[in-house]
Design a protein around this nucleic acid. Sequence first.
DNA 1: GGTCTCACG
DNA 2: GACGTACGTGAGACCG
Length: 939
Amino acid sequence: MSDSETGFGKGCHLHLIDGSAYIFRAYHALPPLTRKSDGLPVGAVAGFCNMLWRYLGENGNSSDAPTHAAVIFDYSSKTFRNDIYDLYKANRPELPEDLRPQFPLTRDATRAFNLSCIEVQDYEADDIIATLARQAREAGGRVTIISSDKDLMQLVGGGVEMLDAMKNKRIGIDEVIEKFGVAPDRVVDVQALAGDSVDNIPGAPGIGVKTAALLINEYGDLDSLLARAEEIKQPKRRQTLIDHADQIRMSRRLVLLDENTPLDFTLNDLEVRDPDPTALVDFLNQMEFRTLTRRVADRFGTEAPALPDPAPATAPSQDSTPDMPEFSAAQYDCVRDLDTLNIWIDRIRERGYVAVDTETTSLDEMRAELVGISLCVDAGHAAYIPLAHRAGGDDLFGASALLDGQIPLEQALRALQPVLEDPAILKIGQNMKYDAKIFANLGVTVTPIDDTMLLSYALHGGLHGHGMDQLSDRYLNHQPIPIKSLLGSGKSAITFDMVGIDDATRYAAEDADITLRLWQMFKPRLHAAQVTRVYETLDRPLVPVLAQMERHGVKVDRDVLSRMSNAFAQKMAALESEIHELAGESFNVGSPKQLGEILFDKMSLQGGKKGKTGAYATGADVLEDLAAEGHDLPARVLDWRQLSKLKSTYTDALQDHIHPDTGRVHTSYVITGAVTGRLASTDPNLQNIPIRSEEGRRIRTAFVADQGNKLVALDYSQIELRILAHIAGIDSLKSAFRDGHDIHAMTASEMFGVPLDQMTPDVRRQAKAINFGVIYGISGFGLARNLRIPRAQAQAFIDTYFQRFPGIRAYMDDTVEFAKKHGRVETLFGRRIHTPEINTKGPGAGFAKRAAINAPIQGTAADIIRRAMVRLPDALAGLPARMLMQVHDELVFEVPEDSVDETINRVRAVMEAAAEPLVRLDVPLVVDAGIGDNWAQAH
DNA sequence: GGTCTCACG
DNA sequence: GACGTACGTGAGACCG
């Protein structure tokens, strides 16, 4: 070796890269990528190149940059160790078929990066590394071995260090001692005793690393130990060492690296050279690695060569299900280090899209903690990144300790953030609003997105639900792992952070895999189903809008609710004793069954009707009838029920929903919650806060504006009737709306021939009921019940109505006809609502008809407010107004006092013009506004 | 878990 | 001619 002043020596720094380890890691971490032009498998080469590129980037400008470097490979799987022990590494799985042809390409890649590429027949890469490390050490230089292979740890010390590139962790003497319990020079002794199942090194049966280290530390080294084996106290251990001494010695020969591998070059030949940009770009281009080629070309300022156009990102064809691998053959990786994560990130960038799923500790996004993230870019190959899994409960202290082998959450997040926020990379999820909120909590804005739940909603609204399990079963014929199987259910249920990482990987990666497959299937179908616009303008854009509303929440005054709860409790107690007295016995007023028996059996009141379950009906309508006949008990029960409802559902339950940190209530809107296009609000439902009764309405006073702010509520006036007038083309209704007339009074006047100036409240009330009935698909029975009039009279009203407004009848008939023919109806904006029951016979037929009649009206109104909501963030830009709630035809905002007027002006303008320009309604949309310190005032 | 009841638009 | 029915939701309580 050259010790001359010009050659390798003191001050020099040699990097030895374990190339074979790189290749296997790249292969197993990446989907089976092939070269577009000829199908040559190149996935491992791609990963390998990415790693080398990153290696150069990290070391190029570092003050600790290597002066010399080499990439070392295994020549073949057969080495001199097979002559020592024919079973050495005999349990290794067969080399994958598509990996072997990539071996020569990785050598080419190394040379293209202008790195020395080294392999020696009959020797392992580890022997070459050992030899070069020894030479460098003896020459007085430093060595960094880039590998995490424990078999190389025997080389550490005397200026030799290892670098675990995955964990970006240096391995020095201390780390080796931590791992093996002995210094590097005794590592082979420990390994010889402990053996190694991966390399099929027998060692001493029953002795592991811990015991081996104990023994070596006690006896000094392996030879001394074996020589003095008789002295070992434990009989079994003593016998093992005596019986297997030869096997142990052989094991040591297997693990001991050969520091004298014959080499036909010197360290001086390994001097670092800059890559030749042209050669490198040429090679990458040949491999057809688009992203990396461009990146390298950019870096060196060379022209990226022209490449043929890639296949479109959305490869699946229009009319056929894309070929997908079987789920049984799917590969789900667990990503435990940054290097592997970066491989996935590169893969995502290469593709331009990725299916993402988060696993958390709660379904409530405001309380949920991120536990892990899964990714998928190719059907059948997904990854799970565990981040916050914790030890199970057995260990007294372990319960809160993070498990090892997880990338620190913050690091993983910062690595993923550029991808999640990259406008050129599509993030695909199932119910992305959930995941987007989880990421938003961590400061990451996920955009742009696609959502398989919303795709299904646009495509299949009315046909079935859009949960992932359901979609997977129906469209992929695959039943995903039930979450219950991991978490259990009921009281003993655990949170996801307590799930083992292996189980979690299978579950979470599968979810991302399923999501990607559903997306590949659904996305190309939007056009054929003519719902692209619905999805892209009405549904998908709502995700960020709702996410922000939900995260912001609405301030709720706990004291107001608490005081009301107490008041309700007192009143209920008084009513309860009164009711028991009237009944002559004590019973559970809240039990419809017991109440029915009291009313109709014990008290023998008339009108007792049993439903299909054999229980008496005791609904409000029944009790009201009885009360009207002068019975006190049902009247008291009605009062009690109202209070009970208000207390349990609102004043009590709402308090539990006040977030401890924000002091606000954060609902969750379900975009696919109603088939018509309406939203649904859950946990809690803020769309059914009382208003009709005076007592209930007071609950709204607990919904307050923050200091210095006002609540502003804007709602569409009569929007569904206006839409009906437009769709059915009723001229008289349209002109009444245009002229701003009282629509119910006008209807009454038309129907009953009463002049407007002589209109009575009662006649108007009846007309109003008819107007609403029409929207719901009117029936004589329903109207009769609603108005409490004889059915014949109700039917007469309806007949008159249809005579006066024949367009309504025509609309209803046409709509049902359309539904029967196409199995669906549509809103003015093209939303399709399927009506699979429309052709069934029997009692269901009436239901389906009325639903079909109602859906285009309710749905069009829902579409309109969706359009307004999507436009509002831009329209309110620069204003401090916050949108808080949506209640079907109403939007509620929180606004600093001095911005109230401007906010109302802008919101009203957006809401009133929300149908345009796509639809020009023949009637104006009118929006009423209210302002207050609380929601009751604002309405 | 199904049924009943009731809160909203 | 009889049969049940207003449309769309979510949640709490009861009960088997």
